[in-house]
């Protein structure tokens, strides 16, 4: 019989602590597969700052270090500058990258740091129990917007990828989702391109991934997949937002 699926070599053999239906496990799987395929396992360093994925180092079988909340891009900068041979990625949530770490992200991008930011956008603070995120949609109910996000009071969902795309040091930015097999494959392809931009020494790359959080959205996993399609992508449209790598995709 032909083997069509195997556990990624760089995914540690421990059970995930993530909730059922959570997008993190899918992204971890895709990334560990990709790191192996691109043969980066022995020179990649990952930085997962606080958020649900703070424990990502329990699953990725590569060198990883914790960072303070929001400081992923600064820590990755220090790593890359001191050890340019490394391939460096941050794995940040929406609170981390789009609220507390906005300055670090924008300035790392502006310096064109050869690092890759994996930006998990689930429109909510997951680890702390479902509070409003900077990317929480208008009228979306969270524990700190119990009457729905009122843009007059709480402001608008922030589109970080579009903001970072304006920055000259950023060379590759794509928004994907992990709510269908097709979208998961696109996510993998996007991260590959982002890593490749780093390997080619071109500049800052970012992949924003719309990721389901059934627990805090109070939905079933299936409903949360559908919500990404029907609601979330209206605010955060999928696709390549910026590509100045000069490598147009053959397919």
């Amino acid at each position: 019989m032909r083997k069509v699926y195997t556990r990624p070599r760089l995914l540690k053999r421990v059970p995930f602590h993530y909730c059922p239906g959570c997008g993190h496990s899918v992204v971890h799987r895709v990334m560990t597969e990709l790191i192996d395929e691109m043969n980066l396992g022995d020179r990649i360093i990952g930085i997962p700052p606080p958020g649900c994925s703070v424990f990502a180092y329990h699953y990725f079988d590569v060198d990883m270090a914790e960072s303070a909340h929001g400081r992923g891009a600064a820590v990755a900068t220090g790593i890359k500058r001191a050890f340019p041979e490394a391939i460096v990625f941050t794995y940040q949530g929406d609170g981390d990258l789009a609220a507390i770490g906005t300055a670090e992200t924008i300035h790392a991008a502006n310096r064109g740091e050869r690092i890759t930011a994996i930006f998990i956008n689930n429109a909510v603070y997951g680890m702390t129990g479902g509070q409003m995120a900077p990317t929480t949609l208008s009228d979306q109910v969270t524990t700190t917007t119990p009457y729905g996000r009122d843009t007059k009071i709480e402001g608008y969902p922030i589109r970080m990828s579009e903001i970072v795309a304006l920055i000259r040091g950023a060379v590759y930015i794509e928004r994907t989702a992990v709510n269908s097999p097709a979208n998961i494959r696109k996510t993998k392809k996007a991260i590959r391109k982002a890593f490749q931009a780093q390997i080619d020494d071109l500049g800052f790359s970012l992949v924003e991934i719309l990721s389901p959080c059934p627990t805090n959205w109070r939905m079933t996993p299936l409903e949360s997949w559908q919500w990404i399609d029907k609601v979330m992508t209206k605010e955060f449209p999928l696709g390549v937002i910026k590509d100045i790598t000069g490598k147009n995709d053959a397919d």
Binding site: I45, A65, R71, V75, G78, I79, R81, A82, F83
Partner: peptide, 10 residues
């Protein structure tokens, strides 16, 4: 935090 990153890699 950049210092932290540089120190991580020695």
């Amino acid at each position: 935090n950049m210092v932290y990153g540089a120190s991580l890699v020695g």
